[in-house]
Design a protein around this nucleic acid. Structure first.
Lengths: 151, 151
DNA sequence: TCTGAAAACTGGGTGTT
DNA sequence: AACACCCAGTTTTCAGA
């Protein structure tokens, strides 16, 4: 799907505030409300906007520990591992890599005890996981929901 | 702030759909509309809900390349580096680590050319950046906006 | 893509449990 | 606290241009 300036303007606005009303979006993008409705529907149908979500402060929710887990995998079972990783509730991000490691996870737990349990019991229990390297996040500097390309 | 079942229910609902109306939230959490308003205000004021945002498909936006960049840093200028990293538009996530690396970045670019420019020109140009290791994300398996702890 | 009007929702308020 | 009710203002939907 082709995206014009109106679409990009809407996406940028919704990136910073996902609950903006149609009339506010219309004002910011200099179009009518009707246009905003039809554009948003298009963007959703095309899968460009996947969904909307609140952004929560994990510390304040009691999830004090964030860790990056780098995984080296063998005997690659791509499909099965994807499914198993997707069911782990602690995993916020999981991606397959090329380079020094095969998988990268970002994991959130209440404390280091839960992190240990995750890495050494859950993760190491998955077939194909050979070795893991766990790095604790001491401070988050940037945490953006999206990157919207510039003009 | 103490969070009860109602708060958690609202957070879970807003995690999966951040544009749910107050009446829908009320129905899903089995509370009145008024309660939803007061709870949401509390959650925002307390900083538990930071903001709301759309979630976009970066591939469809033309950002075809996602990479994890692990950085080893020396002569640590914590404050300055944070600011410099935060201004880089390609950076979706940046965090300081303990372990084998000092900083982890998740970066999105249009193509590998932009990625190269980011790593070897922008990033390596920042004072304190000693060495980088770039891993390309071949496939994203999990990409959740939040982790909401279970009961 | 825009406009106007009906329908639904919001954000208050009140008093009650 | 949470609830049910009400009310004016706003937002959304939908038709027509």
């Amino acid at each position: 799907m082709k995206l014009d300036d109106i679409d990009m303007s809407l996406l940028r606005a919704l990136n910073t505030d996902g609950r903006l009303s149609a009339s506010e979006l219309a004002a910011r993008s200099n179009v009518s409300r009707g246009t905003v409705y039809t554009r948003l529907r298009r963007l959703r149908r095309a899968g460009i906007i996947r969904n909307f979500s609140a952004h929560v402060d994990h510390d304040k929710l009691g999830l004090a520990v964030t860790a990056v887990v780098l995984v080296s995998a063998g005997q690659f079972r791509w499909r099965e591992m994807s499914q198993e990783l997707a069911t782990l509730p602690e995993v916020q991000y999981a991606g397959y890599l090329t380079g020094g490691f095969d998988i990268m996870l970002i994991v959130r737990t209440r404390d280091t005890d839960e992190l240990r349990a995750f890495v050494f019991e859950k993760l190491q229990g998955i077939q194909g996981v050979r070795a893991t390297q766990t790095l604790t996040v001491v401070e988050e500097v940037v945490n953006r929901p999206n990157i919207i390309p510039g003009p």
